[in-house]
């Protein structure tokens, strides 16, 4: 056991656990997008950043292990401002047709944005528009909505051990690809919806669910 100062109070932590694990245990909620408890950490979305005393930059809590004597701030103004900016960046690159997206009510990106009080982004940037891949019998893929969290890639690899997805291109043009950047249409995808379950947004949807209504409580911006 090691002692850590978390948001001003001393707490006990186990060696090897990440800052995020510790926060979850202590009931502190930290927004995450690319992180999923069943997958290895990626460190791509940077939403879970926290302030660690002495560190040059903020650190991502999902992959940073706790260390003795750490002093952590999970909701300092600096942290909140950075998270808001990241959400704004994600939203600015995301299509704005939430009302007609059938994951709208279960969309993790919207949930995080609502929690942080981010509405419409103040700036626009190039969006990545791709044709909808709906010619395969199992999964409908709409990469325009993809937030590049890489959870589908990891889920397919680590949970299903199938390795259907890879990452292609680079920078702003990065894209989750199948083979030579072909529409998703693989036999292994028959009766497997692992990636769909892991997709935080509306990029991956099961064919039969495409038009089914998914109801949940509405998100209200807390501001």
């Amino acid at each position: 056991m090691i002692t850590i100062k978390l948001n001003g109070s001393n707490v006990e932590a186990r060696r090897g656990m990440t800052i995020l694990d510790l926060c979850k245990e202590k009931g502190i909620s930290i927004p995450t997008l690319c992180y999923h408890p069943q997958l290895t950490p990626t460190g791509a979305c940077r939403l879970c950043v926290v302030e660690v005393e002495g560190a040059r930059t903020l650190v991502a809590s999902c992959h940073t292990p706790v260390a003795p004597g750490m002093t952590i701030q999970t909701h300092s103004p600096k942290v909140i401002q950075t998270r808001k900016m990241i959400v704004e960046l994600l939203l600015s690159a995301h299509p704005d047709f939430c009302p007609v997206c059938n994951k709208a009510n279960v969309c993790e990106l919207r949930m995080i944005a609502a929690d942080l009080g981010v509405g419409l982004p103040r700036f626009r940037t190039k969006k990545r528009y791709y044709p909808i891949e709906d010619d395969n019998p199992y999964i409908i893929r709409d990469l325009s909505k993809c937030v590049l969290c890489f959870r589908c890639v990891k889920a397919c690899r680590e949970v299903k051990m199938a390795n259907v997805y890879s990452v292609g291109y680079r920078g702003h043009s990065s894209k989750i690809i199948v083979d030579n950047d072909q529409p998703l249409n693989k036999e292994v995808c028959r009766q497997c919806d692992v990636c769909v379950l892991f997709c935080p947004v509306g990029a991956l949807v099961l064919r039969e669910e495409r038009f089914r209504k998914i109801s949940r409580k509405p998100f209200i911006i807390k501001g």
Binding site: N163, V164, Y169, I177, V178, D181
Partner: peptide
């Protein structure tokens, strides 16, 4: 390795 891996590498 998978085709996607090589394609991803090439386009990077």
């Amino acid at each position: 390795v998978s085709v996607g891996e090589i394609y991803g590498l090439t386009t990077f």
